[in-house]
């Protein structure tokens, strides 16, 4: 990737950052209450047949060094706060990928009492990968597409989720009841 030296130093720095991040992004994985179907397929991407690492993508454990948060699950009440905290610990710029039907909308569990339903009820989501579960190729495809969009500047940052309204979220109704 050629550095355009006529731009300001700030822009140049941005370009370097984007380049480094896109060419070697670090992913952190978070399960917000999934059945493990998606998690296993994510883990499978590391195994020899799919080998996500050959794209320069590294799946590692610490949010503090991560660029991309890859999430599964319909967000159980217990997982919600942890999910937020993991996100908060990530340095900017950061991106969120929702993997699987549950992460998209709550999936088969829509309407169940202990779930919030969909990662984007809690965090701004940059990419959605549908499936139940999506196969490893689909996961890789989604992640790579996101990275390409970031690199080309086509990626649009999502709006943050709407704050919970009265009667819509479990915590509000239940707190009032007690």
């Amino acid at each position: 990737m050629a550095l355009n030296l006529e731009k300001s130093w700030q822009d140049a720095l941005e370009q370097i950052k984007t380049w480094a991040r896109v060419n070697s992004p670090w992913l952190v994985h978070f399960n917000s209450g999934s059945c493990n179907g998606c998690d296993i397929e994510i883990l499978a991407t590391l195994t020899p047949r799919y080998d996500l690492e050959r794209f320069g993508v590294k799946l590692q454990g610490s949010p503090r060094h991560a660029d991309v948060l890859i999430c599964t699950g319909p967000v159980t009440r217990q997982a919600r706060d942890r999910l937020l905290r993991v996100y908060e610990q990530m340095p900017e710029p950061k991106f969120v990928v929702a993997v699987g039907s549950c992460a998209l909308s709550g999936g088969a569990f829509q309407g169940c009492y202990n779930i919030v339903g969909g990662i984007d009820e809690v965090l701004p989501v940059d990419a959605y990968i549908p499936g139940c579960p999506p196969r490893p190729e689909a996961i890789i495809d989604g992640v790579v597409k996101l990275l390409q969009n970031i690199q080309s500047g086509k990626h649009v940052r999502p709006a943050p989720p709407a704050p919970p309204s009265n009667g819509h979220r479990a915590e509000n109704t239940d707190e009032e009841a007690a």
Binding site: G106, Q110, G111, C112, Y113, N114, I115, V116, G117, G167, H168, R169, A170, E171, T173, D174, E176, A177, A178
Partner: peptide, 17 residues
């Protein structure tokens, strides 16, 4: 939650009240 009079709201969560 597993009592019969605990009713889930259409958007999930519960009626607690």
């Amino acid at each position: 939650p597993l009592r019969k009079d605990f009713v889930m709201s259409p958007t999930g969560g519960g009626n607690g009240a």
